[in-house]
Design a protein around this nucleic acid. Structure first.
Lengths: 139, 139
DNA sequence: CAGGATCCGCTCTGATACTG
DNA sequence: CAGTATCAGAGCGGATCCTG
């Protein structure tokens, strides 16, 4: 599952990358980004790495710091975009299970390299910030 | 550069995925996501697929619809996080060149699978939305 | 050319309170 | 348990004007 690329691979893949970047479905990309690109969506999707079926309160406790309002909103959007399915059980107390659709699982998988990358470059990322802060502080 | 995974591969990779998902560097992830989750950052980074060195006006014309204010702000943030470097030339008229750092190129590469995926599933994504709209409209 | 500064509407968020 | 409703504040984002 180590899918990070070397610099050489990056160089080799560059033209392919550019192709995608230019495929101007910009509108669609914007749409997708507007949903996965909000503060919480990716973290919420993230949570299904733990279990295939998640209840509301379950998600709430796994996504650190999310408010119930935002979780609700986020789930509705994900549902609307076909990434998550929602099953309501007519029980008392109420029970609602959320699952990733195959589309949603696909997205999770695509995003995973990003998590790997962040984990791998954590120090670099942190240092970059600190150095920037220092250099600005001196001025 | 075709890096989409099959369902079988996904299943096989799942435990690895979960490991990363739990590595709780949540704060750091949040930082990175603040870029992904910002309306413009990814599109701006995106632009460097075209050329390694970009000037301000160049970026402005490649990122559709961005205002000068937001481009400025976005560039500052990317610089702060060590993803972009900035070179000022003491000329008249002024000239400033922005480049992705190796960290920035890394991020671009990690995000690329996501663009591929969006491009590949564009129809599915659009359909999912339309069906959702329909089913809600009927109620 | 590459922005900094300012004004302003709007949306996004979080807290709190309430419901089936 | 799984939400909905409401409200207030912070920040986003655009337009405009200005500068080295």
């Amino acid at each position: 599952m180590e899918r990070l690329m070397t610099d050489a691979e990056i160089t080799a893949a560059w033209s392919d990358i550019c192709k995608v970047l230019n495929k101007d479905q910009d509108e669609l990309k914007g749409d997708i980004l507007s949903h996965i690109g909000n503060k919480w969506s990716l973290f919420v999707i993230h949570a299904w790495g733990i279990d295939g079926k998640m209840r509301f309160s379950n998600l709430e406790s796994h996504v650190n710091g999310i408010s119930q309002r935002m979780l609700t909103k986020c789930l509705r959007e994900l549902e609307r975009d076909g990434l998550v399915s929602r099953a309501v059980y007519a029980e008392v107390p109420p029970k609602v299970e959320y699952e990733l659709t195959s589309l949603g699982r696909g997205l999770l998988v695509q995003v995973t390299p990003l998590w790997f990358w962040i984990a791998k470059h954590a120090d670099e990322l942190k240092n970059a910030r600190e150095e920037y802060a220092k250099s600005r502080g001196m001025q």
